[in-house]
Design a protein around this nucleic acid. Structure first.
Ligand SMILES: [Mn+2]
Ligand SMILES: [Mn+2]
Ligand SMILES: [Zn+2]
Ligand SMILES: [Zn+2]
Lengths: 146, 146
DNA sequence: ACGCAAGTGCAAATAAGTCTCATTTAAATT
DNA sequence: AATTTAAATGAGACTTATTTGCACTTGCGT
């Protein structure tokens, strides 16, 4: 059932000049299958749980290589460890609301905001490559009494 | 020449229920005197250079206490260490453009963008407390030939 | 199937930040 | 001005996330 998916991921890796190792395929498959924003340790433990053989070092090195090719996106929620998500297409960019109470992450996209960013860059003769737009606060669940 | 400034900073610290120690005063004075976005180690070294006696532990602890009182602002540029700047008034909030080539930081404020943030929060029934809006890219100086 | 550069695993090394505890100091009190 | 004491500091040990060196695999082009 995942043979096709495997082939497809091998393909993707090769297109990005990355050797299609079992570790990298497993990692991409994991991130493809979730909406979570995992950190390296969580990814490592998930892969172990799935009987995949990986080492922490490989998780870190793979994430670095994949991020460099924009196959995964690094997220820094400011809590001391990097998080990662599978990159979607350029068109599917999104930013984050992060609940300081329960850790829930809500994804959003606001075209107006993105446009304003470009406008600010232009005003400053600045060529943007990436940005972080993270709003921290309290989500609706945590706001309610109890 | 800094006697008045010292008194003023003592005042500020006490208003925030913080003991006005020489270390904290020196730290605030340092951040008041620069537009840089220092990390803890840089602050520590600057204070040493100025013949102030401080320890790293105190720099970290002071920054935490001062950030809690909103006298300084934590900045996370995603490079593995926290940076700090002196907080200005509520009205003087700003975000950052960060040059990936030379490290230069350009400050900006865009009311439209801030308004869009609030609008996104509202749509998601989310109560915001802080946000990070950092745009990474290449500044005008680094863009030029050579 | 062969060869080898790229990738991996393990353990040791870094690096930022935190913590413990003995000593000092700000500031409230006499 | 001297006394008191809770809060703050300094030194260094410790924690945690991430990186690195090196010997050993493995993907993949020929
Ligand atoms: Mn996301
Ligand atoms: Mn700033
Ligand atoms: Zn929540
Ligand atoms: Zn630059």
């Amino acid at each position: 059932m995942s043979a096709a998916e495997n082939q497809q991921l091998k393909q993707v890796l090769r297109e990005h000049e990355l050797k299609a190792t079992t570790q990298r395929i497993a990692l991409l498959k994991l991130l493809d299958a979730t909406h979570e924003h995992f950190d390296a340790e969580e990814i490592y433990l998930e892969l172990l749980k799935k009987q995949k053989n990986v080492s922490r070092a490989t998780v870190y090195r793979s994430l670095e290589a994949l991020a460099e090719q924009d196959l995964v996106t690094r997220l820094d929620f400011g809590d001391g460890r990097m998080r990662f998500e599978r990159s979607k297409g350029e068109d599917e960019h999104h930013d984050h609301l992060i609940c300081e109470e329960c850790g829930k992450v809500i994804e959003f996209f606001n075209l107006e905001m993105e446009a304003q960013q470009l406008s600010v860059c232009e005003e400053n003769d600045f060529t943007p490559s990436t940005h972080t737009m993270h709003i921290f606060g309290i989500c609706s669940d945590c706001k309610k009494p109890q």
